[in-house]
Design a protein around this nucleic acid. Structure first.
Length: 120
DNA sequence: ACAGTGACCTACT
DNA sequence: GAGTAGGCCACTG
């Protein structure tokens, strides 16, 4: 169990959060996915916002979660501010072979990795 | 308990 | 095609 707040603790069987982290871990290097895709893969039950929220807490987790491979539907790196620095996310993606221009993923359509299709 | 906020998305003007 | 509104669920003050 990991504390994510004073009064709140996260358990392994929290389900949604765990699933988000698992899917995020499954994203292959050099590919990216979106919050909506993950939400859809999970059934859209909690909407895409919760995916972002889950990834927000991923910084707190012991395990390293490649949250930099998750962008919004436009391929925009909206979450780069939450990586501590602004360039961390971009450099991480570039080190994996993804080119970023103006906080946007180049060839996003090709680099897009849909868990619903690839992962079934 | 209430209201505001958020790494979003879809649909309608 | 841009701008607006609503929905979604959890967290914070």
């Amino acid at each position: 169990m990991r504390k994510i707040s004073k009064n709140r603790e996260m358990h392994e069987e929290d389900g949604f959060f765990s699933l988000v982290y698992q899917v995020t871990r499954m994203v292959p290097s050099g590919r990216v996915t979106t919050y909506g895709a993950i939400a859809k893969y999970l059934g859209t039950a909690r909407s895409a916002r919760m995916v972002g929220w889950a990834l927000n807490q991923s910084h707190f987790l012991e395990d390293h979660i490649p949250a930099h491979r998750v962008v919004n539907r436009n391929g925009l790196l909206t979450g780069k501010h939450h990586f501590g620095g602004s360039r961390v996310m971009q450099e991480l993606l570039e080190s994996e072979g993804i080119q970023i221009i103006d906080d946007r993923v180049l060839n996003f359509k090709q680099a897009f990795w849909d868990p619903s299709e690839e992962l079934e």
